[in-house]
């Protein structure tokens, strides 16, 4: 089963390598990893999606918690949370199907951010399900290039990373 881990880490050089290296050497499988600074510039947040059974997830969280640079780790899989992913899709197009693609973009409330004679770039945000759906819908036209950021997530409600309301 896929788990979403929200991990606060020291914003220092080498931290990403430590985390990625841990996954590699213990044989854990990262589905996606997104990282960026938080409201506190000394702290970064990583949202890691990892696939595995309960035993593996338990080991992943315990091993991550052992890293000195990991300040706090929460497995938010079973919490109510908002998650978003950003995708850029360069799709093949021509005069005959351009309007059809634009319709799809509208349905998904995505945006066209670049347009050429034979291609356009579409930007979409949403949860992983929506991103998967837009990808599937555009595939028949010919996807030339696709970039996904990986999932970022935040628990709903007043609770914050320090547990304060």
């Amino acid at each position: 089963m896929k788990h979403t881990l929200s991990v606060l880490v020291e914003n220092k050089p080498g931290v990403l390598t430590r985390i990625a290296g841990l996954f590699a050497r213990r044989g854990f499988n990262i589905k996606s990893l997104a990282v960026g600074e938080t409201e506190d510039p000394e702290v970064s947040r990583m949202t890691i999606v990892v696939d595995g059974d309960d035993r593996i997830i338990e080991q992943v969280t315990k091993q991550l918690n052992k890293l000195v640079d990991v300040i706090k780790l929460s497995d938010i899989t079973h919490d109510e949370f908002v998650d978003r992913e950003l995708v850029l899709i360069k799709v093949h197009c021509d005069a005959s199907n351009r309007s059809e693609i634009i319709q799809i973009v509208d349905v998904f409330r995505a945006r066209i951010v670049d347009m050429g004679r034979n291609s356009m770039i579409i930007e979409a945000t949403g949860d992983s399900g929506k991103i998967d759906a837009i990808e599937t819908s555009l595939r028949p036209f010919g996807i030339r290039e696709l970039v996904r950021t990986g999932k970022i997530a935040m628990v709903r409600g007043p609770k914050t990373r320090n547990g304060e309301a």
Binding site: R55, Q59, K62, N65, K66
Partner: peptide, 8 residues
């Protein structure tokens, strides 16, 4: 003392 050892 190491929780990661428990159940490994």
């Amino acid at each position: 003392i190491d929780p990661a050892e428990v159940g490994k």
